[in-house]
Every structure is written in structure tokens, then in C-alpha cells.
Design a protein around this nucleic acid. Structure first.
Lengths: 343, 343
DNA sequence: GACCCCGATGTAATCGTTTTCAATAACAGC
DNA sequence: GCTGTTATTGAAAACGATTACATCGGGGTC
């Protein structure tokens, strides 16, 4: 009807322009956009006007006025860690489905960066935060006063102020030990990361399971990188060979270490699992392809992400409810045929 | 001096509260926060007040008023694709260093989702967008009027309205073909993804290189998943065996397909590279570990992310400059010893 | 017909900043 | 001593939406 002005990019079109085009008040336009009570006639006029003007609401303005950021934070150590990659995808899917955005931050296990990203989360006024903290930050997190709920993933305090979703790490580690033991291995070395609570728990499970079998535990801790693991395991095996106490199997606490150990074995000319059985965490596609396959714990990665979002939403629903810790079980994907079978 | 009120979480503390606490106007507080011209005395008072009140600026308000979202969008098909994982990490590092946030979106190669995320980018008033579009969306992108600059990555139109940074795909594919040819392979099959322009270009390079060697090209296209590749290659080899025209090598256009082919080879009991040489794209850690190692093209992933950000910033600096296409070279990581060497 | 209530609509206040503009003071130059 | 310039500061107007509140009809009830 009226002059339907082309949406030139001279000036961003706002709700006022739509209102003028449709011949209604801005309030009515706003109500149409948020499915408020508007007569069908006006609703149609406004929708036409929106189309005609090419109007797109300004989310900053909306957030400021409505005091809902519709944003959740996700802080992990490194998105390139496949575990976090998968979790982040699950979180983002759940978030977008609920009409929320995600701000992803990588800390590289650095407490200073964790602190600065926590500050950022406050400034963004995030609705909630999903966080995989280092041990250092975890210890202080109770004292930080954050004005949004936090759900910890992968790592968590024994009992705390925060909801969390973690793997049953002791049990999972025990599954690996039991598997190796069942395959006939008796000298089972352990290599663990030295920054996360996760590694600590896996170490505990490893120790307990070995003790249950009457075996001796021998564990070392390294920075969680393939390089560190490769170097350490090479050094370790060299020492062990000299002292005549070669392990016949090694379990590791995450996929980066797993990769390091496999590389070291290849460099040293050790066959897997002939000379050295190897087992670890995270069922990444490649673990199926190396040698006759690697035995690993498969984490329900997608479930972890979804569960974290669920916990978060329920907490937002009822801020007073008791904190919960969701413990999910890993499954043991047995691959390498072991000693017993081989004779 | 004055009553330094504890920052109870009763009410969020705003710039007004800080101003009152410091005994200055809000304008002065704002200036202190943005390093504007303020006397040292007042600056100190304000900084104390900020600390005392625990004030955190509200980014939504800031963005609304200043009309700078300080946000860039990143739209990829799937963050779990290791190529995009690495790129996203590079983009995020560069962004946070420049004081900007990133909104990450996964489209699963679905044009509808691409469209809706483009809309979202408009609503967020992003400063710029880094985008790896499907072929379908790429073809229409010229017509979409977006009010922010776009940098295409991984995929791009031959010459277009947009800056882009891509691999030299024909050359990279040729490198692989040349490598295989140099190793003595003559029947080189090709398996390519069917959604991206990247695969098309790699196919072109594959064909040209084979022609240069006077060899026959035989290529197939599949959806870019490991499962599709595994099924297709199994079917293909079965047919080939029957017709007596078994390829002795196969190259693929990305790491998912690579994985599918390796799986299929294992299932069929084919050794790599004895029965079938395999080469592909993306130097993922595991490619070093399977068999005697897989020959791959290593993409400068981090460089790609950084270059995209650089292009974006320079475009923001000067919207009028001519569009540029940054073409980076891949390097061939030769791993599997081939026919010639083996006798 | 008077009264009340309810649903649709518009007006204006508001969210928490930045930024424009005017005001003030200090200081130099003449 | 007057004027012009510069450096600080504050008051108030944006930014673009949502939402509290007022208004206006229409329809039901007695």
C-alpha cells in the first residue's frame, strides 16, 4: 500500500521503521515478534512490513532491555581435544535448539586464562556456564562469587557448590585393568596427566583394581600432551629394560597420551600388543585402525554435553534445588587380542 | 572513605553505583574504563570504586550504545571435522587477542541451517563473518545482502564479491598423484566428497595430473562421511576385482573419506600399501600410525585461520579495497614406501 | 441502561552504557 | 584585565528494543 521502501544499507532498519511501514506502534511490532496478543489483521500487516523492510531485531538491544542474555558460556582447555570437540558440539546443538548462543573459550589449562574468561562471562551476563576447570581453579571456585549457575564437566570436586557431570573414572580405569588382567598381562604400567582431577581419579581406579588383583601399581604423571607422553614412556621403558623389569602392558588416562605411547612403541620397534599391550581412554576412530586395534574406554561424549545442558536448565528453573553430580559410565571397547589367546 | 558497600548479589552493580561510590559522574567512570582523558586523582578514585563495588561492565549495553558488536561469526559444517577444529582454534585465538568474541555455528552442510545462521549473524550485528559454505549457498551468496564483510574459507567461488582463503587444491591433488606415480602406481582411483567446491577442485587437479602422466582417471563422488566412503570403496573394489581392473592406489579428498577407505581395506583384508596404496588430505596425527603410515597433504590449518582473520580486519579497515583470494600451498607428507622401492 | 471486565493497542519509561555538548577552570598571550 | 585555547568534568541525549501502564471499545450481566 504505502511506499514500500527498499532496504538500502544506508541505515539499519529498526523497529520504528517497521512500525511506520505497518502503520502501528512499536509496541505492536514487538508483540508480533514475541507472539504477544495481537489481532490477526495487524499481525499480518506487521509481518508484511517486516518482510518489506528486511527488518532484523537487534539482539544487543533486546538483551539489554529484557535482561536475558540467552547466552551460555563454555570453557574448556582446548577444543582440539576430541573429547571437548564432541562435547562442545552437543552443547551447541542443545543451546541453539533452546534459542541460545554459546561462547566458547580455550584456556590451555592456564589458570590465568580461566580467571579472565570467568570475568568475561560476567560481563556477557551469561545465563549459565559449562566449565572444565583445572585443579587449581577448581579449588578456588567456591570462593568466587559468580552470578550465574555453573555446571562442571569432566572434572569436579568430590562434593561442592556446583552441579557436575563426569565419567565414573575409577570404574572405567578398573575396567581397563580388568581387561588387561583378563588377557594375561601382569605388569601393568600407568601413565596419567598431571593437571586434571580426572587423571587423579583414573589413577585411583587403576591402583585399586591392581590391588584387587594382587598386582603392583607403577604410575607416572606427565603434562597432558602426546609429546610429553612419548618422551616419558621412552625414558621409562629404557630404564625398565636395564633393570629387567619391563612392563608388558601400559594404560593411559587420555587419548593424547595414548597417541604418545603408540608413537613411542613404533619408534622403539615394539609391536602392539605383542611386546606391549596398550589401553586408554576415548574411543576415537583411529584407535580402531592402529595395529590390531586398541582397547579403549568409550565415553558417552554426546550424553555428557546434553546432560550438562539439562542440569543447567533445571538449575535455572529452580536455583534452590540441591546440587547434583551426574556420573556416567564408560564402556570398554575391547580390541587387541591379548596374551592368553596367543598362547 | 565513604561507605564502601559490599557487592551483595541483591542487585547487579552498574556504572551509576561506581560513580556514586567514587563521587563522580557516570561519564567520568566511562572515560576511566575506556582510557579517556581523566585527571590522575579522579582516575585513582574511580579505579578504587570499581574494585570496591566489584563492578563489571555490561557488554550488551556497551554494544548497543557504541554500535560495535566486537563479535565475529564463524560458520562451518561440523566442528568435529579436525580441519575445522584447528581453524576454529586459530580464529578464536586471533579474535580474543583483538578483544573480540566468536559465535560458532555448525551447519552439517545443510543450506537451510546456513540460511538461518546467516540471519542470526545479522541479528547479532557481527563485525564480520568467516564462512565455509556449501556449494548451494555459495551460488546464492552474491545475491544475499549482508551488512558485514564475509571471508570464505576452504571453499570459494572462482572470482567473487568475497575475500577468501583456500588451499591450492589442484596443486595439492597433483602432488599426491605425482607421489603415487613416482612410487610406481599406475591405476590410481579417486574418491571425492560431493558437497564442497573443495572436492571439485581436488578432483580437477587429480584429473589433470593423471592426464599429464598419460594415465586414466577413474573417480567417484560420495557424501563426505567415513561410512559412505567405506561402503562405496568396498562396492567399487568388488566390482573392479570381478572386471579384472583392480586399482593399485586410491586417493581421497578429505580425512573422513581417508578413514573410510582404511577401514574398508582392513575389512577386505587388503594391506596398505602392499595391496592398495592410499593417500589423502589432512595430516592428522593418526595417519602416521596406521600401517607404515599414510601419505597425506598437510594443510597449514593455523595459517588458514589466521589469514582469514587478517583478511577480515583489513577489509574492515578499508571496505573499498579489491577483494583478494589467498591461496596457500599444502605440503606433501610422504610416508608409505611404494612399489618401486619394494622391488 | 449502567456497570464491569477483558482484549487489543498506544504512550512512555526503562535497560546500562557511550558520547555529544556545554560548562568550568586554568593558563598563556597581548 | 580581557580574550582565546585547552584540559577536565558533568548533564543529558542517544542506542533499539521490551514492558508497565493507560486508554479505548465491545460484550456480557443484572
Amino acid at each position: 500500500m504505502s511506499d514500500s521502501v527498499k532496504a538500502t544499507s544506508i541505515k539499519a532498519v529498526g523497529i520504528k521503521d517497521v512500525a511506520r511501514e505497518a502503520g502501528v506502534s512499536v509496541a505492536t511490532v514487538s508483540r508480533v515478534l514475541s507472539n504477544g496478543p495481537v489481532s490477526d489483521a495487524l499481525r499480518a500487516r506487521v509481518e508484511d512490513a517486516v518482510r518489506a523492510t528486511g527488518y532484523r531485531p537487534n539482539l544487543s538491544a533486546r538483551r539489554l532491555r529484557s535482561q536475558h542474555s540467552q547466552t551460555i558460556g563454555l570453557i574448556v582447555s582446548d577444543i582440539r581435544n576430541p573429547f571437548f570437540t564432541a562435547v562442545s558440539r552437543a552443547v551447541e546443538d542443545a543451546a541453539f535448539q533452546a534459542g541460545m548462543r554459546v561462547i566458547l573459550c580455550n584456556t590451555d589449562e592456564n589458570p590465568e586464562r580461566e580467571a579472565m574468561y570467568l570475568r568475561l562471562m560476567q560481563e556477557e551476563r551469561v545465563t549459565g556456564l559449562i566449565f572444565a576447570p583445572t585443579r587449581a581453579t577448581l579449588a578456588q571456585l567456591d570462593r568466587a562469587d559468580l552470578d550465574f549457575p555453573v555446571v562442571l564437566i569432566d572434572r569436579s570436586a568430590p562434593a561442592g557448590r556446583f552441579d557436575s557431570v563426569v565419567l565414573d573414572n575409577p570404574q572405567a580405569a578398573a575396567l581397563l585393568v580388568d581387561h588387561l588382567h583378563g588377557q594375561g598381562y601382569r605388569r601393568i604400567a600407568g601413565l596419567f596427566g598431571n593437571t586434571s582431577t580426572t587423571a587423579v581419579e583414573r589413577h585411583a581406579g587403576y591402583q585399586a583394581a591392581l590391588a584387587a588383583h594382587g598386582l603392583h601399581a607403577e604410575a607416572r604423571f606427565v603434562p597432558p600432551t602426546a609429546e610429553a607422553a612419548e618422551a616419558e614412556i621412552a625414558r621409562w621403558l629404557a630404564e625398565a629394560r636395564r633393570s629387567g623389569a619391563m612392563p608388558d602392558a601400559v594404560m593411559v588416562s587420555n587419548s593424547l597420551l595414548l597417541m604418545g605411547v603408540v608413537k613411542a612403541a613404533r619408534t622403539l620397534g615394539l609391536t602392539i600388543p605383542g611386546d606391549l599391550a596398550v589401553a586408554g581412554f576415548d574411543n576415537e576412530p583411529w584407535t580402531e585402525l592402529v595395529g590390531p586395534g586398541l582397547t579403549v574406554i568409550e565415553q558417552p561424549v554426546h550424553e555428557i554435553g546434553r546432560a550438562a545442558m539439562t542440569l543447567l536448565f533445571e538449575r535455572l528453573d529452580d536455583p534452590e534445588r540441591a546440587t547434583r553430580k551426574v556420573v556416567l559410565s564408560g564402556t570398554c571397547v575391547a580390541r587387541a587380542p591379548g596374551r592368553r589367546k596367543r598362547g
